[in-house]
């Protein structure tokens, strides 16, 4: 996340590194929309094809509501970390970064628990196209959360290691944009995959 632009201090013309990196991350997120769009569409196509296995009745809505709430709140801690970085309050920033990573890990733990439960109830990736598309969609989302946790911990580590640069806040903003994106993907998944199917 800490790619710099070709710094050209001589030129009269100087690309603002803030704009450069934010352009890149938004362009990338535009691409990610189609990635998750394809996964969600596959699920919509297969949602009723449950074969001999269980269908959406295995979902435990109260449980998933809580983990959705955890992820939503991690967006709050993330934006607070970003806000602290704009005030150059590095101590607060680290606290909120670690809080975000923690909430992300709680969400992941919840997903592991949920997957195990479903497998016990007879829903696996190989049970039905419904099972395949459910696990692959939510699994890829979970992988994105895991990458986000690594990015958060890495950013916090760099900050602890005293690797502050003038653009430190920028890194937090980049990680934040990615993190919020992963959150909005879950907003869509929670509604389309869980609430609308039970």
């Amino acid at each position: 996340m800490s790619e710099h632009t070709a710094v050209d201090t001589n030129a009269e013309h100087h690309a603002d590194p803030d704009v450069v990196r934010k352009t890149a991350i938004w362009v990338f997120l535009g691409s990610e929309v189609l990635f998750f769009g394809s996964l969600i569409s596959t699920f919509l196509l297969y949602r009723t094809r449950i074969g001999d296995g269980p269908g959406a009745e295995v979902f435990d809505i109260p449980f998933t509501s809580v983990s959705s709430f955890v992820l939503l709140m991690s967006s709050l801690t993330m934006v607070l970390a970003h806000h602290a970085s704009t005030r150059k309050d590095w101590r607060q920033m680290r606290v909120w970064l670690l809080a975000t990573a923690m909430l992300g890990m709680v969400f992941l733990a919840g997903q592991v628990y949920e997957f195990t439960e479903f497998v016990h109830e007879g829903l696996t990736v190989g049970t039905s196209p419904f099972g395949s598309s459910f696990f692959v969609l939510t699994g890829f989302h979970g992988a994105h959360v895991a990458v986000g946790v690594i990015l958060l911990l890495g950013t916090a580590f760099m900050s602890f290691a005293g690797r502050f640069r003038p653009d430190e806040g920028m890194n937090v903003e980049m990680v934040g944009l990615y993190w919020h994106f992963v959150d909005i993907v879950w907003i869509a998944i929670f509604t389309i995959v869980y609430l609308l199917q039970v």
Partner: peptide, 16 residues
């Protein structure tokens, strides 16, 4: 930024 993001969103909705 808004344009890129919504371009991806519109593409996903229309194509898929």
């Amino acid at each position: 930024y808004r344009r890129f993001f919504y371009l991806g969103l519109a593409g996903a909705v229309l194509l898929l």
